[in-house]
């Protein structure tokens, strides 16, 4: 009896504050703009009630998403930005994780702390730090002009390049940690064996180290890719007006256009898009757990 009571506490909480809200999002995504939420929508029609919500099952918000270019482009460009930035994060994170795993053992806790420290620091502040660096009169331009690489300041802030830089910067710890933990467990004698058997260092790295750290790479890529797909803060602070990301579109649809049904429909489609990577990620994690045991 007590056991069920114990199970019920977190269970009921999550059903009420996680599952039910999704049901509501889904329901509202199927309803009409004017009759959606009572007093909060400016063009609220007081005649309509809950009955109208149920009657309005016509998927028109979803059809609207397919008809208006904006949404398609936003989904595609989010996917593109997430893919490219995941790749760059891996490119930047792997050597760091590798260096950490090969560092003297007594350094590793300190290095580990240095990677985790930014993770505890406010996300917003870390994105903000780049606004001062990337602006036209910012530090990067000052530096490049000082060393004479460029004579005119480059426009980086409010472009997609700034978004990529911001994503790589803020999500780097998510890539480094799983890759590092995979590389740390890697048995150094395997690489020595490969080298003894005639592999060059590079071939040994390619044929032994990379495959052995595969699970870490996959976990890191998903940990970056999944949240970036719905990212809002980075595109809205570092991106320009032409930076289309679905998290930003949803935010604007909700707060600026106050079109809650369309915002809900955008959320439902984003969720459907995310199911595939989330399931793949879970599988990878499970496989790794089984391998550990």
């Amino acid at each position: 009896m007590r056991r069920y009571f114990l199970i019920a506490i977190p269970y009921v909480w999550l059903v009420a504050l996680f599952l039910v809200p999704f049901a509501i999002v889904f329901k509202i995504s199927l309803s009409d703009y004017a009759v959606s939420i009572p007093p909060y929508v400016p063009r609220f029609d007081p005649e309509a009630g809950i009955g109208a919500l149920i009657d309005a099952l016509d998927f028109e918000n979803f059809i609207w998403l397919t008809e208006d270019d904006l949404y398609w482009k936003a989904y595609l460009s989010s996917l593109k930005i997430a893919l490219i930035s995941t790749f760059f994060t891996l490119l930047a994170g792997y050597p760091i994780a590798y260096g950490m795993a090969r560092a003297p053992e007594e350094w590793r806790p300190t290095l580990m702390m240095l990677v985790i420290l930014p993770f505890w620091t406010s996300f917003l502040i870390r994105v903000y730090a780049w606004m001062g660096i990337l602006s036209n009169e910012g530090f990067l331009n000052q530096f490049l002009m000082w060393i004479g690489v460029i004579s005119e300041p480059l426009t980086i802030l409010n472009t997609n390049s700034a978004v990529y830089i911001g994503i790589v910067y803020t999500y780097l710890p998510f890539m480094i940690l799983p890759v590092y933990s995979a590389l740390e467990r890697l048995d150094g004698s395997l690489i020595e064996a490969a080298e003894d058997l005639g592999c060059s260092r590079l071939t040994a790295f390619w044929l032994v180290t990379i495959p052995m750290s595969k699970n870490g790479i996959i976990a890191g890529c998903f940990l970056v890719f999944i949240p970036v797909l719905g990212e809002f803060v980075i595109p809205s602070l570092l991106g320009g007006s032409d930076t289309l990301m679905i998290g930003k579109v949803l935010w604007e649809e909700f707060f600026s256009n106050r079109d809650w049904p369309v915002a809900s429909a955008v959320a439902v489609v984003l969720l459907l898009l995310l199911i595939i990577p989330i399931v793949l990620f879970q599988r990878n994690q499970q496989k790794q757990q089984e391998a550990d045991q």
Binding site: F22, I24, V25, I28, E231, W251, L270, L271
Partner: peptide, 17 residues
């Protein structure tokens, strides 16, 4: 792994509901 925009939106709609 849920995007924050979705969690935020869904909770807001619950609270209003």
């Amino acid at each position: 792994v849920m995007p924050e925009v979705i969690t935020g939106l869904s909770l807001l709609l619950l609270f209003i509901g």
